[in-house]
């Protein structure tokens, strides 16, 4: 592999890994607080992409015959913001309607996991039933200029995705380490029983976690749609499962784990595809994962909790 091709793949891997990382965040934060694998999260990403699509096309005057006449870049910014808010609403709604009642009844957490799977199915197939199977093309809001430096080509969208992801990482690390709610999140994952006794409103923290996770998935959705502008109802399913794997690879419950795991999975997938026939991509990627987890069962940053007897 020549240096240019290597660097080109590196860049692609960074972008691809960014999506995984942003989605993995939602998995990892919810897991940290609730020990719940929120299997609906991949579909929240899909919902984000669709909300972004409808809002952007609305602003561009596709419906109702009015056009805001805003420049596309402004529309893009507005779309990102509004999508994040609305998708966060969807995430919180699922937690309130489906997960919380079950938790209150003291159901085994695996029943909540199954409920999450069901919620994912409802989102996917509800979308399919409502909007039909036709794919939708996300409007091109940002001019897709391609730069070329020393044989390596990159578009500004790619750069935007990568930079955004890094910014999100810094922002979230700060939130979790410096703000009261963030510290409460960490406290809950450290000791679930003691936190309510210390007067920390657990439900508020949970809602906050879902807001953060879902809005990051929405961000990933809009960015993904900008980079790969074809939307379909099942787009979140496979990406979602893989992002979950990325979260575990990094050590679930750890924010930096989600990022490192996301990028790592991105690298593995892109480089496997570059070196081997593309049909082998999943096979090799998952085999690597299997071997890795067999050697280091708690992921990169995960710490095995010592059992005291």
């Amino acid at each position: 592999m020549s240096f240019e091709i290597f660097f080109q793949n590196l860049l692609n891997a960074l972008q691809w890994g960014s999506f995984y990382a942003l989605i993995a965040l939602g998995y990892t934060m919810v897991y940290g607080v609730l020990l719940l694998i929120n299997f609906a999260h991949g579909d929240i990403f899909m919902v984000g992409a669709y909300i972004g699509f409808f809002f952007a096309t609305l602003l561009m005057g596709k419906y109702a015959g009015f056009s805001t006449g805003l420049p596309p870049a402004v529309i893009f910014g507005l779309t990102v913001l509004v999508t994040m808010v609305l998708t966060a609403g969807v995430g919180v709604a699922i937690e309130r309607i489906a997960y919380r009642p079950l938790r209150r009844k003291g159901a085994s957490r695996l029943y909540v996991v199954i409920t999450a799977l069901m919620c994912g199915l409802i989102l996917e197939n509800g979308n399919l039933a409502l909007l039909g199977a036709s794919r939708r093309n996300f409007p091109e809001l940002l001019p897709n200029t391609v730069h070329n430096i020393a044989g390596v080509t990159f578009s500004n969208v790619k750069i935007l995705v990568i930079v955004t992801t890094i910014l999100v990482f810094i922002l979230l690390e700060t939130i979790v380490r410096k703000t009261k709610l963030g510290m409460a999140m960490r406290a809950i994952s450290y000791d679930r029983m003691a936190v309510p006794l210390m007067g920390i409103p657990v439900d508020t923290v949970i809602v906050f976690t879902f807001i953060l996770g879902s809005s990051m998935a929405a961000l990933a959705g809009v960015l993904f749609a900008t980079a790969y502008p074809v939307l379909e109802p099942y787009m979140g399913a496979l990406v979602g499962w893989k992002a979950f794997i990325a979260a575990v690879l990094g050590g679930i419950g750890e924010i930096r784990g989600a990022f490192v795991g996301g990028f790592l999975l991105g690298f593995v997938e892109i480089f496997v595809a570059a070196l081997f026939p593309s049909t082998l991509r999943d096979l090799i990627a998952f085999s690597i994962l299997l071997v890795f987890l067999s050697i280091k069962p708690t992921g990169i940053f995960g710490i095995a909790r010592a059992t005291k007897i």
Partner: peptide, 12 residues
């Protein structure tokens, strides 16, 4: 973590 391994085996 074991759940992921089973998931990976399914994909493999």
């Amino acid at each position: 973590y074991l759940a992921i391994i089973t998931l990976a085996v399914n994909y493999i």
